[in-house]
Design a protein around this nucleic acid. Structure first.
Lengths: 117, 117
DNA sequence: AATTTATTTCCATTATTCTAGACATATGGA
DNA sequence: TCCATATGTCTAGAATAATGGAAATAAATT
């Protein structure tokens, strides 16, 4: 991930409807939610919501799959992890943060010094 | 930090010149850099750079101080840490991430499960 | 006081984004 | 097939943002 990759991701999250939809999908977990449930939950007209869900999907930060006549959206966690790592990267170069992988726990561990982030 | 707070922060970083300037300032560390050095380093006209630095400062993600006839900009790390915590927050609610403070090390530790972020 | 240097403000132009009505498509049920 | 449901596309207007030239402010130097 570099600056060019990160800009469209930040742009995607820089809109209230999209950010709320994304957070809703993260809370919904890997099964995701159908488009209609998202527009209902957020009180956004379906065509407007479709525009924003399309934006999120094009950015790769959510995935979609078709089930019957519904389109189910779900959060793509990997890209978020990459974005977080990108944000911390600069802090690492300043020596005030570290990112490492704990294979035993099966997780990424980010340590942010109080001095820095 | 909630959705309303996060949107303008993402918006601030969703612009290549601003994101590059911000990363430059993070690398520069707490002393920061004068406005002119930033526009020179990025090859951006000084007035355009001033517009973007003003945007970053208004968002609170950088601070500025005057020194002689220079204005020195420096990264505000706290807000970035808050933003990262906000991004991980949803993952926590899904039980696949934790954020804790390690007082002994003087740092925040974020653990992101491979399953999630 | 006049000059140079550093930065910001003003302004107009251009480009992009958001919004939602109207219409289109696609699936499943009667 | 006909109809209701679920979602997406088309479209145009309104709003917002980015750009850079020109002028303005502010501080140090002569």
């Amino acid at each position: 991930m570099d600056t060019r990759d990160a800009v469209p991701l930040f742009d995607t999250l820089a809109q209230e409807t999209r950010l709320r939809a994304f957070r809703l999908l993260v809370k919904a977990g890997p099964e995701g939610l159908p488009a209609g449930a998202i527009s209902d939950a957020l009180g956004i007209p379906h065509n407007t919501m479709s525009f924003h869900l399309g934006h999120l999907a094009r950015a790769g930060i959510v995935a979609s799959r078709k089930e019957g006549r519904s389109v189910i959206y779900s959060a793509s966690f990997e890209l978020v992890r990459d974005l977080i790592a990108f944000m911390v990267e600069d802090c690492c170069s300043a020596g005030v943060a570290t990112v490492r992988t704990d294979k035993r726990k099966g997780c990424s561990v980010i340590e942010l010094s109080d001095f820095c982030c």
